[in-house]
């Protein structure tokens, strides 16, 4: 799970490759987090205790979500019926505190980012739940681990149209939830145009390190859902599965980098349509699964 920030590195490296630059080192995100952990902190006078509490809470909920998510050859340490709902809501809890912390600073820019974040996530929520319902319906189980182990090559053979639709839907959710292009541009130069990055502008020091790490974990979590579907190899031995899974994650990151280099950001009022299309794809998948 320590590999999560590496994804950011791969994405940035791919982008740099397409832009013809050398780009930052692969491990840049680790250096950033390490350096931030070693620094002091500056707080805005407008903020309250909430602002200081929220980074720890955000990271805590992300790590907790990690406990529920199976990956590679590993079962998740914690699995019970219904944990896929809890998983989605843990991400929600983190979002709630990111948004309130942003509002705590009283900055109009951060308010704007917060407002957009809640809009897009409110729209992404139905798409995510439809996908989860389709996965649950496909495997007749209600826990992430059970779903993960229920998806094997046999299932792919008979239900690949539904699964492909699901992967497409989840990929859109993945881009939207992690604030990547075409929904949000993580390295835009103007605060006005950011969504996630502007919300965390005022965090500093270890707090910011927590937030950065939490963001990369979120990338990892939602990514491993997609890769988990795409690499339907179960019971082929721990190491093989693990390696394939890691490889899949790496490829996913490259894909994100490619999307980011080749597409522009969407015109803001069109983003709901983009996310809505994910919901439609997921609904179709569900239709195929149920029929």
């Amino acid at each position: 799970m320590l590999l999560a920030p590496l994804l950011l590195g791969i994405i940035n490296k791919t982008k740099a490759f397409y832009a013809g630059r050398t780009g930052q080192p692969l491990l840049q995100a680790y250096w950033d987090i390490g350096k931030l952990l070693g620094k002091g902190a500056v707080y805005s006078r407008s903020t309250t205790l909430l602002f200081r509490l929220s980074p720890s809470l955000i990271l805590a909920s992300m790590i907790t979500a990690l406990f529920l998510m199976p990956s590679g050859g590993l079962l998740s340490p914690l699995a019970f019926s219904g944990d896929l709902i809890l998983f989605a809501y843990l991400l929600g809890l983190a979002r709630f505190f990111t948004v309130t912390a942003a509002l705590d600073t009283g900055s109009a820019f951060e308010g704007m980012g917060a407002s957009r974040e809640v809009l897009f996530s409110a729209l992404a929520e139905p798409a995510l739940f439809l996908s989860l319902a389709a996965l649950a319906g496909l495997t007749h189980t209600y826990s992430l681990s059970a779903v993960y182990f229920g998806l094997n090559i046999e299932v792919w053979k008979t239900a690949f149209p539904a699964l492909l639709l699901l992967v497409a839907a989840l990929f859109v959710v993945f881009l939207a939830e992690n604030s990547r292009i075409p929904v949000d541009d993580p390295n835009t130069h103007l605060e006005l145009t950011m969504i996630h990055e502007v919300m965390v502008l005022d965090h500093s020091g270890p707090d910011f390190a927590f937030i950065q790490y939490a963001a990369s974990l979120k990338l990892w979590l939602l990514g491993s859902m997609i890769v988990g579907i795409l690499v339907p190899l179960r019971g082929a031995g721990f190491w093989l599965e693990e390696i394939l899974f890691r490889l899949g994650m790496g490829l996913l990151a490259v894909l994100v980098g490619y999307v980011e280099s080749s597409r522009a950001r969407l015109f803001l009022p069109r983003v709901p349509k983009f996310i809505g299309s994910a919901a439609v794809l997921a609904a179709l998948a569900l239709l195929l699964v149920l029929r």
């Binding site: 053979k157 149209p161 179709l284 195929l288």
Partner: peptide
């Protein structure tokens, strides 16, 4: 009797309908 390939075609038909709408 649910051939996945036919399913794929049908899904694509639905998707084209939606594209037409949008």
């Amino acid at each position: 009797m649910n051939d996945p390939w036919i399913q794929t075609l049908l899904v694509l038909l639905i998707l084209t309908d939606l594209v037409m709408l949008g």
